[in-house]
């Protein structure tokens, strides 16, 4: 549906995007992850036709959007990171304007405003001025304005920044629902759990390039198969801990008095061994945790920085 090839963009000396390739199939939710300054917003601005790339091209259904941006603009919905609404107008008036900007009018426009306000759960407050809305409500209208014309492709740039958990959950559920109806979505976020919850495939960007992409499991597997087993005892258990140092399937052992951390690529039989050795050394176990690598650790390993840096 959308193919991005060799996209580049510079601001003076600063190379914001250094050659990005992304492909999106119809009905997918794609996650775009990256720390601040990774080039996500610039890439999204180019996809949404706000910025012209210095090099490369974006093809929508096989047609270059540089040559014919209108073909994409008509079926594209964009939820910008910053609220883009008229604060002195009511929610209804805002939806009315953005609907008419996409060619809706008359009864059809009214019907769509009704439907969208239902979806974003803001029907009762539509007559109020947007400036009187809470942060969460503004975010919902901001999303609603992008849904009126039933876009084929929806770009959401961090749509849940700075809102209450209730609104956030509502927005995430809405996105899932829209995707279930067949809408293709590009989603960027700082929140790893949102991306994990929503996205079929994830592109990780850093310093203007895509450094990894795939499903969540593929990304995790590509980085490491290592599991972390953390055992807590009720007393100093260094003798138990040292007994694991000689075990072949354990790659590394960290002993800290009552706490023992094992790193292993094959956790098979490890639980049984821990219980046996603890019983043998007469040490009582308080807890055992097994940690698989997640997107956060993938991101950390790939970029050397945390996602919210």
């Amino acid at each position: 549906m959308l193919s991005i090839q060799g996209l580049k963009k510079s601001y003076g000396e600063v190379k914001a995007v250094k050659g990005v390739d992304i492909s999106i199939e119809k009905g997918e939710i794609i996650g775009l992850l990256g720390p601040n300054g990774a080039g996500k917003s610039t890439t999204i601005s180019m996809i949404s036709t706000l910025l012209k790339p210095d090099a490369g091209d974006i093809f929508f259904k096989g047609e270059s959007i540089q040559k014919n941006p209108k073909s994409l603009q008509r079926v594209l919905g964009v939820v910008p990171q910053d609220i883009a609404l008229y604060p002195s107008l009511s929610g209804y008036e805002n939806l009315k304007f953005w609907g008419s900007a996409y060619g809706l009018k008359g009864a059809e426009l009214k019907k769509r405003i009704d439907e969208v306000s239902e979806i974003i759960g803001i029907k009762e407050r539509l007559k109020d001025r947007v400036e009187k809305y809470s942060g969460g409500m503004k975010r919902r209208i901001n999303i609603g304005a992008a849904l009126l014309h039933q876009p084929e492709l929806l770009i959401m740039d961090e749509p849940t920044v700075g809102i209450d958990p209730q609104s956030r959950n509502h927005i995430l559920e809405t996105i899932k629902e829209l995707n279930d109806r067949g809408m293709t979505i590009i989603y960027t976020s700082h929140y790893m759990e949102e991306v994990e919850f929503l996205c079929d495939r994830i592109y990780i960007m850093d310093e203007g390039v895509v450094i990894a992409n795939g499903t969540k499991d593929e990304l995790v597997e590509s980085v490491s198969k290592e599991r972390k087993v953390i055992v807590e005892f009720d007393e100093d258990a260094e003798d138990v801990c040292h007994a694991f140092e000689t075990l072949e399937q354990v790659d590394q052992v960290l002993c800290e008095k009552e706490k023992m951390t094992l790193l292993t690529t094959s956790s098979e039989g490890i639980m049984q061994k821990i219980i046996e050795l603890s019983a043998e050394k007469k040490k009582d176990i308080i807890s055992i945790d097994v940690e698989k690598p997640n997107l956060e650790s993938v991101f950390l390993q790939l970029t050397g920085k945390a996602l919210r840096d």
């Binding site: 949404s48 036709t49 594209l76 910008p80 883009a84 304005a145």
Partner: peptide, 13 residues
């Protein structure tokens, strides 16, 4: 300042 100009730019207007 309200980002509505940018939003209009990417609309069919």
């Amino acid at each position: 300042e309200q980002n509505t100009w940018q939003r209009q730019l990417i609309s069919p207007i």
